[in-house]
Design a protein around this nucleic acid. Structure first.
Length: 597
RNA sequence: GCGCCUGUAGUUCAAUGGAUAGAACGAGGGACUUCUAAUCCCUUAAUGCAGGUUCGAUUCCUGCCGGGCGUACCA
C-alpha cells in the first residue's frame, strides 16, 4: 500500500537527516490544498531540539528528490503530494484485485465468542434490542474482517419471575387461546399477558396505597422496597411466587405451559431476527445454565475468593476498587452474576475461546466489572480478554422506554413502518414495478435506514429516538449510501471497464477523482480502527463521506460521456472500485447494497 | 452520599492532542431536454462555566453547573 511506502520513505529520511527515527509515524490526509498526505513534526521538536518547521523543511528537502512525490514543509507539517496517476494506479489496483476482500486483514488471530441480543421470553423485542442486534451483527463482521474467528451466541432469559408473570396472566385470562387464533405473532401474544399481569398488580398496589397513606411519603428507595415487599403480599404476586416454586420443582402442568409459551415467543423472535438479518451460531438458555455457577462456588471457596458471612457467600472486591459482592444467597440459591461466571466457564470448555465480547447495555457496566474481576481472581487466563461492549440506551421523546408500562417502540412495528414508508417512495419513482418488486426494494431500503440510524452513533452514546429521523431516507442515512451504490451499478450496467493493464490512470487528474482515490485508500485504516475500538459508527461515517465524494464527482463529471475513451474507462474503473468499497462497507454493517432503487 | 458515562450550531450527530471544529436535519437561495434530483451547489449557526498541563486542548487533569445510568440476599 502506498501509505506504507511513504511511511518507510519518511523513516529512512529521518535516519539519513537526523540519524534518529520515530518508532511509528502517523500519516493523515490533510485538506487538499496542503497535499495528499501529511506528517506533523511538532512532536519531534524536543527530541531533535529543532523547531517543527525546521524539521519539516529538512525532511522535505531530502524527500523531494523523487518525481512522483513532492514534499513541502508548511507550519511544521511535512506535506506530501503524490502524482495523481501513480496514486490512482496503486489504490485502484488494490481495490479491484482484492474485490470483496479489500480492507480485510489477518492481524487478529483470536477466537472470539460474541454474546448479543439476549432477550427475555416474556415480551417482544423493542428498539433497544434492535440496537443491540445491529451492533452485535456488525461487530461480528468487523472482527471477522480482521481475521478473528467469531462465534455468535445469545443467552435467552427463559426462566424467572418475569416469565411466570406472563404464564399466570395467560392462565387467568387467556381462555386457552393460541397466537394463531388471536392472529398475532407469538411474542406479542405472550407480551400482552405480561402487561395484563403488571396492570393487575398495579391495581392491587393502588388499593394498598389508599389504606396505607404513609407510603407515598417515604423516600424513593424505601417506597420501592415497600412495593417489592408488597409483591408477596398481593394476591396476584403470591400466586406468581407459588407458580415459580412449582416451576422450580418441575411441576408437570407448569412446565408444559412454560414450554408452550416459550415456543410461541421463539417463533416470534425468529421472524424478527430474520427481518434484521440476525443469526447465531449457538443459543444458550438460562434454564439450562443458571445452575452452572454452583460448580464454581466450591472452587472459589478453596481458592479463598469467596467467604461465608451470615449464611451467604461473598466475594471481596474492594482491593480492585469494587465492593463486596454477594455470590450465593443464604438459602443456597445463586444470583445473576454467579450464573454468568458459570456460563463463561462452560463456554470456555465448549469453545476454548481466546476472548469474549458481551454486547449489553451500559446500565450493566457494574455487573460486568464484577464478573470480570471475579473470573480474574479465580485465575482464568482468558479473564483478561473479556470485554463489555457497553452501549447507551435508546430514549424516546418522552423519556426512557419502559416495557412494563407499554412505553416502548416495538421492533416489529418500527420495521414495518420504515418498510411501508420506503415502499411509498419506491412506488412514487417506479409505479410500473410489481408489488413483489416494490416490497423487496422497500425492505432493503427501510431496514437499511433503520440499521444505519442506530449504527451511526458511537455505541457509548445514548440515542434520542426521533421517529422522523429514524425513517428518513435523505441526508446522512443508509439509503444515501445505498443510492450511491445503485447509481454506480446503473452506469456499470451500460459499460464495464477494460482490464487494469489497459487503463490510463494518469487521466484521473481532477480534484474530485483524486479525492475519491484517497478516500478509497482510507477504508483499510477505517475498518481496522472500527474493529479495534468495537465501533461500527466509524464505518457509517466513512461510507457517508465516500458516498458524498462520489455524488460530488458524479455531478461534476460524466462517466459514459467522458471526453475520451481512455478517460471513460479510467472512470469506469474508478467507480467500480467505489462500488466495491461501498458494498464491502455496507456488508460490515449488515446492510444490503441494492442494484436498483 | 459514592461510582461510571455524558455536555459541540435551533435539533440530531462527527472530529488517534495538531493546520480554518466537520456533516445532516431545519431555514433561505440556486441546479434535471445531460450516466437515477433518495442527488448536487451556495448562505445561516456551536465546543456548559472557571482554572491547569502542553509549542498546541472539543480531546488530558481539577473544581463547579446540567443530563443519564448504576450503587439489591432483583435480573
Amino acid at each position: 500500500m502506498i501509505t506504507d511506502v511513504i511511511r518507510k520513505e519518511i523513516q529512512k529520511t529521518f535516519k539519513a537527516v537526523f540519524d534518529w527515527q520515530p518508532t511509528d509515524i502517523s500519516i493523515t490526509n490533510p485538506e487538499p490544498q496542503f497535499g495528499d498526505f501529511s506528517v506533523s513534526c511538532h512532536q519531534y521538536a524536543q527530541e531533535l531540539k529543532l523547531s517543527p518547521q525546521a524539521i519539516a523543511q529538512k525532511l522535505a528537502d531530502a524527500v523531494a528528490s523523487d518525481g512522483s512525490m513532492r514534499a513541502h514543509a508548511v507550519a511544521g507539517h511535512l506535506n506530501i503530494s503524490v502524482d495523481a496517476g501513480v496514486l490512482a494506479k496503486d489504490v485502484l489496483s488494490d481495490v479491484i484485485n482484492q474485490d470483496r476482500h479489500y480492507g480485510e486483514s489477518t492481524t487478529n488471530t483470536q477466537k472470539i465468542l460474541l454474546e448479543y441480543s439476549s432477550p427475555n421470553t416474556n415480551k417482544p423485542l423493542h428498539l433497544g434490542h434492535v440496537r443491540n442486534n445491529v451492533l452485535g451483527m456488525s461487530l461480528a463482521q468487523l472482527l471477522a474482517s480482521q481475521g478473528a474467528q467469531v462465534i455468535k451466541t445469545q443467552i435467552i432469559n427463559d426462566r424467572g419471575i418475569h416469565i411466570i408473570k406472563s404464564m399466570l396472566a395467560y392462565q387467568k385470562w387467556g381462555h386457552g387461546h393460541t397466537p394463531e387464533e388471536a392472529g398475532e405473532k407469538g411474542d406479542h401474544f405472550v407480551g400482552k399477558f405480561y402487561v395484563m399481569f403488571e396492570r393487575e398488580f398495579e391495581r392491587e398496589w393502588q388499593v394498598f396505597l389508599k389504606d396505607n397513606p404513609e407510603v407515598p411519603g417515604l423516600s424513593k428507595e424505601d417506597a420501592a422496597k415497600r412495593r417489592q415487599e408488597f409483591f408477596g403480599e398481593s394476591e396476584i404476586g403470591a400466586q406468581a411466587q407459588e407458580m415459580l416454586r412449582k416451576w422450580e420443582s418441575s411441576d408437570k402442568d407448569v412446565m408444559a405451559l412454560w414450554k408452550q409459551m416459550n415456543e410461541w415467543v421463539y417463533s416470534g423472535f425468529y421472524e424478527t431476527y430474520q427481518e434484521l438479518g440476525s443469526t447465531f451460531d449457538k443459543d444458550y438458555f438460562e434454564s439450562n445454565t443458571y445452575l452452572l455457577g454452583k460448580k464454581i462456588i466450591d472452587e472459589g471457596i478453596k481458592k479463598g475468593v469467596f467467604y461465608e458471612e451470615g449464611g451467604a457467600l461473598w466475594a471481596d472486591l474492594t482491593d480492585v476498587g469494587l465492593d463486596k459482592k454477594l455470590v450465593q444467597r443464604s438459602d443456597g440459591t445463586s444470583v445473576y452474576v454467579t450464573q454468568d461466571f458459570g456460563l463463561a466457564v462452560a463456554r470456555q470448555k465448549e469453545f476454548g475461546f481466546d476472548g469474549m465480547v458481551y454486547v449489553v447495555g451500559h446500565e450493566q457496566e457494574y455487573h460486568f466489572k464484577v464478573l470480570f474481576a471475579i473470573l480474574k481472581k479465580l485465575g482464568y487466563a482468558w479473564a483478561s480478554q473479556l470485554h463489555h461492549l457497553s452501549y447507551g440506551l435508546v430514549f424516546l421523546p418522552e423519556g426512557k422506554m419502559k416495557s412494563r408500562e407499554g412505553k416502548v417502540v416495538d421492533a416489529d412495528t418500527i420495521i414495518a413502518e420504515v418498510t411501508s414508508l420506503a415502499a411509498e417512495e419506491v412506488k412514487k419513482r417506479f409505479p410500473e414495478l410489481t408489488d413483489v418488486e416494490i416490497l423487496e426494494r422497500a425492505e432493503t431500503i427501510g431496514t437499511g435506514a433503520l440499521k444505519f440510524f442506530l449504527l451511526r452513533v458511537t455505541p457509548t452514546q445514548s440515542i434520542h429516538f426521533n421517529p422522523k429521523e429514524a425513517i428518513a431516507f435523505e441526508g446522512s442515512t443508509g439509503p444515501y449510501v445505498q443510492y450511491a451504490h445503485a447509481r454506480i451499478t446503473s452506469i456499470l450496467s451500460e459499460e464495464t471497464p477494460l482490464e487494469i493493464g489497459n487503463i490510463h490512470f494518469d487521466r484521473l487528474n481532477t480534484p474530485e477523482e483524486k479525492t475519491l482515490v484517497l478516500k478509497l485508500l482510507q477504508y483499510v485504516d477505517v475498518i481496522s480502527g472500527a474493529a479495534e475500538h468495537y465501533n461500527p459508527s466509524a464505518v457509517c461515517n466513512y461510507l457517508i463521506e465516500l458516498s458524498h465524494n462520489f455524488n460530488t464527482f458524479y455531478h461534476e463529471h460524466s462517466v459514459l460521456k467522458a471526453e475520451s475513451e481512455e478517460l471513460k474507462h479510467s472512470r469506469l474503473l474508478l467507480i467500480s472500485a467505489v462500488r466495491i468499497v461501498l458494498r464491502n462497507g455496507l456488508s460490515l454493517l449488515n446492510i444490503k447494497a441494492p442494484e436498483k432503487m
